[in-house]
Computed example of a mutant assay.
Amino acid sequence: MKKVYTLLLLFLTLTTISAQERQTLYAKVVNDADDKPMNAVHVVNLTTIKGVITNDKGEFEIEANPDDTLFFSFLGFKSIKVRVTNDMLKYKGSSTIRMTELAYALEKVVLTPYQLTGYLEIDAKNVPLRPNYRYRIAGLSTGYEAGEKAPGAISSVLGAIFNPADFLQNLFGKKPTQMRKLRQMKEDDKIRDLLASKFDRQMLRELLQVERVDVDEILSLCNYSKTFITNANDLQVLDAINDCYEEYKVLSRQRKK
């Protein structure tokens, strides 16, 4: 009899969990300034790492449970986070998310003239380049980007990655869950498309729970060049951090042996 009760309790527990996983949130996104629906807003559940895009009416539906965190992003608007509540799930379609437009201040742009001769071979050599150099290391599937060519560049790379406790351990060693979520982001096409169009590092910062300057420092300590750190989009940064993490794990296992 006791076994029957145990099996029944287990069945009810699994049913409850399954029901929670199947919950769907229906909501709408509007412009806070004029209440007009916003089309093509990216909505990402930071808890499950699943993303959707709003339709022409600003509506969307996404799998979510209470206390999940949703991240809303749209070009020219302030990205926001919203915590899912029981009421939002219970009263379907009644939730309205308001996004605020950003005010941009135009920066002064300085154009540097180049004297062109009209001969491609000559002009190509005169264009300033900032090459990035990567070096392969035995035992690793990819190489590290050392940045500008300079004396000691290779030794700087080797010194950094073979002393992971100095900087990588503080991030990678203490945040395995966040790193797994970063890998999950690469598997969702909608999230990949979103990251490929963004350069603000916001979603990556939310997942890693760090500031923007920390993301730049992580890339720098992983020996990515200033050119890459400045110009890479969020998807490229995601790939770079993932690569650095995978290499860190390889070296960390080797050190333990």
Rank of each mutant, 00 (worst) to 15 (best):
V127Y: 01
V52K: 07
Y119T: 00
L75S: 10
L219M: 07
V44Y: 06
T117F: 05
L207P: 05
G76L: 02
A165Y: 08
I241L: 14
Y224F: 07
R98L: 02
R98G: 05
R130Y: 07
R180M: 14
K78Y: 13
M99W: 04
F77T: 02
D68F: 00
L158N: 11
S197F: 06
G147D: 13
Y245L: 11
M203G: 01
L194N: 04
N132F: 02
F162G: 05
D35I: 02
L182D: 12
Y248W: 15
A124C: 00
M185A: 15
A240W: 05
F11P: 00
D34C: 10
Q236P: 01
Q209R: 05
K186R: 13
D123K: 07
T6N: 06
S220I: 05
L14V: 08
V250E: 15
S95Q: 12
K256D: 07
L9I: 03
L158Q: 11
V52R: 00
D243S: 14
Q23T: 11
V84T: 05
S220F: 15
L70H: 04
K28I: 00
T96F: 01
S220E: 15
I137F: 14
S252A: 13
K3I: 11
F11T: 06
A232Q: 07
R83P: 00
N86V: 01
G58T: 10
A146W: 11
R134I: 01
K190M: 03
D123W: 04
L129A: 05
K90Y: 13
C244R: 07
N242Q: 10
